[in-house]
Design a protein around this nucleic acid. Structure first.
Lengths: 137, 137
DNA sequence: TTACCTGCAAACTCTTTGCACCGCA
DNA sequence: TGCGGTGCAAAGAGTTTGCAGGTAA
């Protein structure tokens, strides 16, 4: 759990003025939330912040994405945008039973593609789908 | 280019009543269109079909997807749904310059993942991003 | 003081739905 | 004749924007 001061420093470092709302949202996404949608963030704010409009939630998220502090994703199964505080390149595993999204380290995955040489690949995004068997005794 | 009769047969085979609108839309997607959006289909219909409402376009697309004749995709960079008449499993290449989406045969790609055994993978969807260098003389 | 941020409501985009009509089996 | 498909318009979900007021450097 990072404290507000650390969060504020990260915002400033990324060139984003650290306001109360921005600190709260970013802290929530980094520390508590797991791939939240704008709606989830708004719900959280309604319970944990004096007052924050939906527009501010969206504005803030867009600013944080533009500053490189968050990444936004769209996935096949849902119409809403998902925000991720993990901005280094990684893949995802989608649990089709729970809907949970789990980050996958690229080092765990190896891709060998024999595409024609006219394709210049700058990035590979993989979505694994399936179910996650929780270990039982 | 498949004729209307063949298209109609495919629809019936999939348990979808073959109406003029459905034949037209499916034929367009199979023969002419390249990963169209609902909007592109509507635009095409406005110019090539006596009269078709937007609701019919959406209804038809949903029916065709449910029948397994089309697959719908959402990609990170666009908010609209994309329809694909290629329903066998495949990957995609997104040209970041032109926005064009190109089907990639899974046989051309090999993925080795060392995920923990609790992850039961049923499907892997890969999105390659980059640019496509058209061959020049 | 001034630039920037916030809140509100309205607008906008994409998609779905309710209902009346119509045509084909 | 009836069931299902179509068209229209309105509603719905998710997101963006314009503007007035506020707040901190």
């Amino acid at each position: 759990m990072l404290d507000a001061k650390t969060i504020a420093a990260k915002l400033e470092e990324a060139g984003v003025q650290a306001t109360a709302q921005r600190i709260a949202i970013y802290q929530y996404i980094v520390c508590e939330a797991d791939h939240p949608t704008a709606e989830e963030i708004k719900d959280w704010a309604d319970q944990n912040f004096p007052k924050m409009s939906l527009a501010t939630v969206y504005n803030t998220l867009n600013i944080l994405v533009a500053a490189g502090l968050l990444k936004d994703y769209r996935f096949p199964n849902m119409s809403k945008v998902i925000y991720d505080s993990n901005v280094v390149h990684h893949h995802h595993f989608l649990d089709d039973e729970t809907g949970q999204l789990i980050d996958i380290d690229p080092d765990v995955v190896e891709v060998t593609s024999k595409l024609k040489k006219e394709f210049h690949i700058s990035q590979i995004q993989i979505l694994f789908r399936g179910t996650r068997q929780t270990v039982r005794k």
